[in-house]
């Protein structure tokens, strides 16, 4: 049917748009590889000191590092996805035009972002992961089932990631400036997603809280699925619940924002 085709086309557009930045993509691959190497060494030292920290062995910790580098751009963990364009359009008022488009605003941006995610995964994420797999011992599953489950977890992670960024981007309707929001996004994204340290290493009650926040659905849960460290039902339910909650909240905030635009006269 037509609607499905429309959003597929929008997603393809997002894919192609990011595919045009060749030099930037190459630079990103280089950066993620460099940071991966630095992190792997520190993790190896950490797990050397304390084997089975957070329930991972060394190979699993190494895998976690490279998965993080692989998903960093894919899930726009520190920002830099379509929410950047969205904030700019809100700031300049160009968003008013989008509202007249015969398409759902949230679905439109979600499709674009999924297209972007897919490109970042293939163009930017895979190579650092492969480099890691070649030069460091990794714990990769051999059965197709785990990989399939990982892909499901990854798709859910993309939804959660978009959900978080969409909410924050919409706040620009009220804040009028995206600078602070972007910064909040970057700080929380890197720390609470577990980019610098796996969330299951976080100690005590703080660890409990952090592992319950939506950011945990971005890197920690897909990693645990890939490493076979979690039950699938539990993992998927956690991710799906956050995705549903965030996307619903996004819809509510969006209609409030739209009313605001209409009241202001566009």
């Amino acid at each position: 049917m037509g609607v499905g085709r429309l959003y597929t086309a929008v997603a393809a557009g997002g894919f192609r748009r990011y595919a045009t930045y060749r030099a930037a993509t190459a630079a990103g691959v280089f950066t993620n590889t460099a940071f991966g190497i630095i992190l792997v060494y520190t993790y190896l030292a950490l797990w050397d000191e304390k084997p089975h920290l957070g329930g991972y062995d060394q190979a699993q910790a190494v895998t976690y590092v490279w998965l993080g580098q692989c998903l960093f751009a894919t899930l726009a963990i520190s920002g830099g996805g379509v929410e950047k364009d969205l904030m700019e359009r809100i700031r300049t008022g160009a968003i008013a035009i989008d509202l007249y488009r015969p398409a759902d605003l949230q679905l439109w941006w979600l499709s674009t972002d999924l297209g972007r995610s897919l490109f970042q995964l293939l163009g930017r994420g895979v190579i650092p992961f492969l480099v890691g797999a070649v030069f460091f011992p990794m714990a990769l599953p051999v059965d197709a089932g785990t990989w399939a489950a990982f892909l499901v977890a990854l798709l859910l992670a993309m939804l959660v990631s978009f959900g978080i960024r969409y909410l924050l981007a919409l706040s620009v309707f009220w804040l009028l400036d995206g600078m602070g929001v972007s910064q909040v996004l970057a700080i929380t994204g890197i720390f609470f997603s577990g980019m610098s340290l796996p969330l299951n290493v976080f100690p005590g009650a703080f660890g409990e809280v952090v592992r319950f926040l939506p950011w945990a659905a971005q890197l920690q849960v897909p990693a645990d699925v890939l490493l076979g460290e979690t039950g699938l039902t539990r993992a998927f339910a956690f991710q799906a619940a956050w995705a549903a909650a965030l996307l619903t909240a996004g819809r509510l905030l969006q209609s409030a924002a739209t009313r605001r635009v209409v009241v202001q006269g566009g």
């Binding site: 930045y21 930037a24 190459a26 630079a27 990103g28 950066t31 460099a34 940071f35």
Partner: peptide, 12 residues
């Protein structure tokens, strides 16, 4: 477009 490369060396 490759401004990010320098991040590898500075931030990295």
């Amino acid at each position: 477009d490759a401004a990010e490369v320098q991040n590898s060396f500075t931030y990295g």
